[in-house]
Amino acid sequence: MKATVITGATSSNTQPRAVARWLFIIAALIVLMVAVGGITRLTESGLSITEWKPVTGTLPPLNDAQWAKEFALYKNSSQYVLMNKGMTLEAFKQIYFWEYFHRLMGRLLGLAFAVPLLWFAAKRAIPKGYGPRLLMLLVLGGAQGAIGWLMVKSGLTDRVNVQPAMLAAHLLMALLLLSAIVWTALDMAAEAKQVVRRKAILRWATAIPLAALFVQIFLGAITAGLRAGYVSNTWPLMNDHFVPEGIVWWGSFWLTITSDPYLVHFLHRWWAWGAALLLILLAREAKLAGNRRASVAVNAAVGTQILLGIATVWSGISLPLAVAHQLVGALLLVAAVWAAHSVSQKNPGRG
């Protein structure tokens, strides 16, 4: 692929730069929402709102009658009957807050994407060829909201929490969206530089480390959904065994990996090292491609994430440590996408 030569400093470079800044802000909001989602899950708050009202649900209960109605709806859920029977209204308000805040952030995030997108489109400020991609990102964002509701719905009957596979789908969709937004923002930033450049195309050499990271994130989400972190608070051995006792075959690989807490905890622990190695190699490639900052970011995030994972296990799943672990996981993904983009842009024909 030939390099594209852009010459002449004109005002046109301000348009992709503005779009890039907007997308980076959206990415930061998604990272924050991932952290809030972690708090929502760890505080068992996700099933406190039993209805999906995309518009009318924007406002929280504002008087005693409205609170009584919401609490009555929650009392019909399996989580209340099986786990929280006898909960006070004040305790309900505490878990309601986190689920409401998480949903409110989702609504605000949708507006923060849709409104500027319309403005940029009206001003013809979107570089040629990027309109369909940005529209697709908007559609995927809406789909993410629907997946979130299906996840909640999966936990309202005969369960005290959401189905682990649905939790994994919700988190993976959010992080895929985050990755695509960061990649597009980096493309826009390259458009704005007006230098000799090559279009970044994801190749096998950069896709493999990202795929390994997504597998690790999937395992982490299933671990969270099954509360599998609680089956062992020792490291590196799990209850004095490398391969833990208690693993049960559930009839198929998919059913086993989404149902057996011992197996998924074990896999999440040890797949991390393979993913870490691949990410370190990606960081090295980014440095060779001339992006030392992305290389440092990946290496720092990998080391921090491993230490946080171990500390979370040792602590018996401390809320601050577990939330930090989820937050740094999202930041690690951002750093890895940054590094992959650098390598792909520098060497578009490799892989």
Rank of each mutant, 00 (worst) to 15 (best):
L331E: 00
Q66D: 15
A189K: 15
G309L: 09
L73K: 15
P236T: 08
L111A: 12
L331C: 08
S315E: 04
L73C: 12
L82R: 11
L29M: 14
L279Q: 00
P127C: 09
I247D: 07
W270L: 00
D240Q: 10
D260S: 03
L109G: 06
H241Q: 14
G8A: 03
L307K: 06
L47F: 04
F113Y: 15
E191S: 08
A228T: 03
P348H: 07
P348T: 13
A122H: 09
P61S: 03
W250Q: 15
W270E: 04
I30V: 11
G46R: 06
D187R: 03
P54G: 04
Y80N: 02
L111T: 02
P16F: 04
A190W: 07
K75W: 12
W338R: 07
L219D: 01
R293Y: 12
T4S: 13
V264Y: 00
I6Y: 13
G309E: 00
T256V: 03
I201T: 15
F242M: 07
A72I: 08
A18M: 07
L308Y: 13
W249N: 03
K123W: 09
L288E: 13
L117W: 10
I181S: 08
I30C: 02
A336S: 12
G46W: 12
T43C: 03
A340H: 09
